[in-house]
Simulated assay, not measured.
Amino acid sequence: MASVEEQDRYFVPQPSRWPMVGAVALFCIGLGAAFAVNGMLLGKLSLALGFLILVFMLVGWFGDVIRENRLGVYLGREDMSFRWGMGWFIFSEVMFFGAFFGALFWVRTVSVPLLGSLDYKMLYPDFEAAWPLSTGPGITQAYQAMEPWGLPALNTLILLSSGATVTWAHWGLLQGQRRQLKLGLFLTVLLGFTFLGLQLHEYGHAFSHLHLTLASGAYGMTFFMLTGFHGLHVLLGSIILFVVWLRSLKGDFDASHHFAFEAASWYWHFVDVVWLLLFIFVYWL
């Protein structure tokens, strides 16, 4: 147990190269994306290089933090900084998805009824103010909307179950039950990757059978942007929980020092809540 004097001190690490490495990675990714949309081979190479550098940076940077934690240099005040940082990060993610949900609600409640009004009937005589849109400028192939029952409902059950398993793992950690901690984390990671596998299958069905793509008007755009970015967050959360599980196998974390686990569980519960909103407003209503 650190003394009061030690807890008042704040650990300042040595200057790090990782921010510069991350900047190089983002530059390569941005440059590669610009080249790739123009059909240039250099774009794919730059994208691949950028993502490899990004992974290298993440492994190295977080590895440094883990090593510092094991050395016992975080004595108290750093924990509060980590909590504030994670809280603001999740808040930024809330704003990120809020923008996409705002676009969805604007299209459904404002744009579609307006374009279907008498004022625009002469401009768009074949337009039907119904959601999901089935006709309209830019839609070259008829498509079908996604049904809520089936894979989406199953994926909802999977994510809700994963929220329960990560909470169960947390209870095990607080009670000193290491086996419960490890099993709960393993089940959570397994459920996360199962969700991703089923979502990929759902996308394949949408492309090949429903003819639903990003080019399928406002419905296709909002559907794939919201569910796609959510899937990316599930992938990120699953990787984070996998790392936490590996650390638990090595004996890391105890009842009083386990912020990495808490941060991962906060993020995972956030992902669960976003999916519930997606299921209701994108698939169901």
Rank of each mutant, 00 (worst) to 15 (best):
M225E: 14
G204K: 04
G116H: 10
A215D: 08
H233P: 12
I53M: 05
T188C: 03
S216V: 06
M146S: 09
S216I: 08
F279E: 14
G72M: 02
G251H: 05
F253W: 06
G43V: 02
L115Q: 14
W266C: 04
A99S: 12
L174M: 06
L183G: 03
L58G: 08
T194N: 02
V37S: 10
V55Y: 15
W106C: 07
Q175P: 01
V55H: 05
L157F: 13
V189Y: 12
G30F: 03
I139D: 09
W88E: 01
F253K: 03
W275Q: 07
G32T: 04
V4S: 08
A130N: 11
M1R: 00
H201W: 02
W275A: 03
G176D: 07
S248W: 03
L174R: 03
A260H: 15
P125D: 15
L198W: 13
V234L: 09
M1G: 00
L123E: 13
Y219N: 08
L173S: 05
S81Q: 15
S248N: 10
D126F: 01
T188I: 01
L41R: 12
P113A: 02
V21Y: 14
W171C: 02
G50V: 02
F224D: 03
E128N: 14
H230Q: 08
L104W: 04
V112D: 10
W266K: 13
S265V: 10
Q199H: 09
Q141P: 06
F223C: 04
H209V: 00
S248V: 00
E68H: 09
A206K: 01
A263I: 00
I90A: 11
Y219S: 02
G30K: 07
L133N: 05
L58S: 11
V107L: 14
I29S: 14
T222V: 11
W171G: 01
H258C: 01
V94N: 14
V12K: 15
G176C: 04
W284Q: 15
P152Y: 07
L154W: 11
P113S: 03
L41M: 09
E202I: 00
P148K: 07
L185T: 02
L277Q: 13
A215K: 04
A129D: 09
F27V: 15
G87E: 10
F91N: 09
G237Q: 13
W266E: 02
F186L: 13
F261Q: 05
Y10I: 13
L181D: 06
L71E: 11
F96T: 04
F223Q: 05
T188N: 08
L196C: 12
W106R: 14
F223R: 04
G50H: 05
A164Y: 14
V12N: 15
H205L: 01
A264N: 05
S111A: 06
G228C: 09
P125R: 10
L52F: 05
G102I: 14
F229P: 08
Y267G: 03
M146I: 01
G172F: 04
L210Y: 05
L54T: 15
E93K: 02
A33S: 15
W275H: 12
A218C: 06
L214P: 03
G217L: 07
L190A: 15
G87L: 10
M86L: 15
Y120H: 02
A153W: 15
G231P: 09
L212G: 01
Q14C: 01
G192A: 11
E262R: 06
V244S: 02
D8F: 05
W106K: 06
L47Y: 12
Y74C: 00
D254A: 00
L249K: 13
A99G: 12
F127Q: 10
G116W: 08
A130Q: 11
